[in-house]
Amino acid sequence: MATVDLEFAEQLEHFGVDTASECFNCGTCAAICPLIYEHFPRKIIRYAQLGAKDVILREADELWRCLHCGLCTYTCPREANPGELILGLRRYVIANWRGTAHVQT
């Protein structure tokens, strides 16, 4: 189960995750992503969009599968920049691991 964290979205914006709400869950990114892995990256974008902080931290390692190849960002019809969101989420997760000041844990 994913629980929506209402403050999480604002927090993510500090890490450049500011286009997640554009995503309308079409799945184009997952179809074109060369990883062909469990709806990657759409699923993670959805968690970010929801503000499902618990799931993102639980499944953080998945983020590092991304090749940063940019196919998804290039093809997303909503300009949600999924590839860039993945990078932003990596930044958030690292800050979280490191306990950097502006992240509440």
Partner: peptide
């Protein structure tokens, strides 16, 4: 061009196995 496929190289540091799969493709 803009739809080029990744060689898989960037996956090396985290999963060389995945990288191998992608390069084969």
């Amino acid at each position: 061009g803009p739809f080029t496929n990744c060689c898989g190289g960037p996956a090396e540091s985290v999963s060389p196995k995945l990288s191998r799969e992608l390069v084969d493709r």
